[in-house]
Design a protein around this nucleic acid. Structure first.
Lengths: 195, 195, 195, 195
DNA sequence: CATGAATGAGTATTCATTCAT
DNA sequence: CATGAATGAATACTCATTCAT
């Protein structure tokens, strides 16, 4: 008795996800170039050949990994923005990021590793910039709304603070005082206005 | 009649330097794993084989690159510290960094790329941490001297700010307002005491 | 539908054997160092890369070759010993060796080439000595049983005779009077006792 | 003040000898293919390039090594033959060989290693056979003179005995009872006739 | 959907040999 | 005579990818 179409779809989805997850872990750990497709397949529990039923190539898998990352980020940010009061979106997004950060270090390690090496796939570079810019523009808007003298500069500074903190944390997750730094940063941003 | 010892030393030093420079550029651009030894040799203007008169292996070349980076950093920092007034070392070091940064982007790109991937050579990880720690401890000491309530926290925050700014700049050297951000950051650190 | 496990095993066994056979021939002909892995692959009818699905390295292939040789020798000797009457084991083993010798010259050429160069793989040296010693001890035991005055010396002499004959034959298989020498040697050893 | 012609000749001869000696040692130890020209040069105390003032190529050095070996053998054999009484030449030559053997193991190791691998330089194979044949023919002549029934067969057997003994000794110079075996062998050959 | 044997181009590395000095 | 920097072809080995089953 052959599998039903739906069963197949479920298997496909599950396998795809497993492969993407393995790829994230290994790319983050060893870098894209140093990670073999066999290692990804092994970690995902499938054969070397099967990967090519799901992804056309190693690079195509990288794209899928990237899309997965973007989807997670977008989802989280959108949710955070919707749930936050006026002028509180900056704080909400920062909290969201720090929460994600503490929950999945490989994810963020990979995010930054990919971003810092545009040579891997030039196509990714643009998309990364977009996320970054979007975030900074949000900061800028809120600083402007809060009446800061130079909201552009403030947004750059806040963004630097955010990035630097993430990277520091990723280097030393055990010893870095993430919670304290988080509160310290949040204290400097425009505060939510409660009705 | 063979070359004199000194002639040989000069040739060796020049070639070694050329190779290290090429390696820095290419490692920064493509990553360590994706850079071929042939590409480095070509860029340095020598044959593939000659590299192995100067470096035992690709990894050994990476070590040399790393040592070169460390030497430059140490030299710059030492000079900056010596030339700065009491309580002005933080500002001096920050200025030094931002100056180096604007002068040699590939250098810093590589520095961060190497640091973010300890899997390449575990031996490097430790040395990187040392530099980082040293810098943060300097910040901490100066904040303490200046009477800040939580100098440790302040030092972490300043360090994050520094790192984040560097990375932002490296992503978009043309558009990033490095000068303005630099001044903005320097305004927040303990100020030099003039007699 | 993938191949069955058994089909795979058969393919693997056949390919492994082909590679080992090719390696024996080429190692014997050109020596270990002068034989390229590509040449072995070509002779075995497979691609250069496939060899590494079967053997971890060239040295590991050498080990496999060695094990193969040892297995053949052990099997032949055991069979010869079991089938021979009391005090006839020396004669039986010698006959076995001379028979194998005439049947597969590359095999023996390699055996001696490997043995004469312990630098290749020190691990092999020990195993070779064991075979040699075992054989000589058998001779010694039989000479003792047959009442010889100095069985140790006799065994050394017989063993020399054996080795020298093999080597002479291998140098000139066409002209060497192997049969006559064999009979001449057998005439000097302790004779089998028939009931 | 330039060197005189004679001084140059002396230097040349000394260097050539040093290189040949180093080559013998290293070829015997690691085999021809696995020995690098640099290693030979280093062992001989000269630079890599200088070797090519003395030998056209690695193979040409091998030829020189071979010629050196042959010269030593010829000299020793000729001396032994001249000094021996009628029908005592076999014994004299055997004694000479066993004496040389105990004195310079690498020399003989190389001799056999080279001979067992004609692929190295087909040109050598012939010359080796000549030595071998000459020796066996001497044995044959003496056995004939001494009235043996089948002097050809006897000569083959004696030659095997000789070769086997040498090889056994080279494998285990410390434990092999060379002296006893030598006497045992000498006892079986035609004896010198004293007037 | 799934396997893993097979391929071949590509990589780091070695080494005989040349040559400017 | 002597050096050692330099070359480039060759080698062991890896790996993304294909394909028969």
């Amino acid at each position: 008795m052959p599998r039903t179409h739906q069963q197949n779809e479920e298997i496909r989805a599950a396998t795809r996800t497993a492969v993407v997850q393995s790829a994230i872990r290994l790319f983050a750990q060893n870098g894209y170039a140093a990670t073999t497709t066999r290692a990804i397949a092994r970690e995902a529990g499938i054969s070397a050949g099967l990967m090519y039923h799901y992804f056309d190539s190693k690079e195509s898998l990288l794209r899928a990994v990237f899309d997965h990352i973007m989807a997670i980020l977008n989802e989280a940010f959108t949710a955070a923005m919707l749930a936050s009061p006026p002028n509180g979106q900056t704080a909400a997004v920062l909290r969201t990021i720090f929460t994600l950060l503490a929950g999945d270090a490989p994810f963020w390690t990979l995010f930054y590793a990919l971003r810092s090496q545009p040579a891997i796939t030039p196509l990714l570079a643009e998309a990364f910039c977009e996320v970054t810019d979007q975030l900074r523009l949000l900061f800028e808007a809120q600083y402007r709304q809060a009446g800061y003298a130079d909201p552009v500069l403030e947004s750059y500074v806040l963004y630097s603070l955010l990035e630097g903190t993430i990277q520091q944390y990723l280097l030393n997750p055990e010893t870095y005082p993430l919670a304290a730094v988080t509160e310290r940063i949040l204290a400097t941003v425009p505060q939510p206005v409660h009705a």
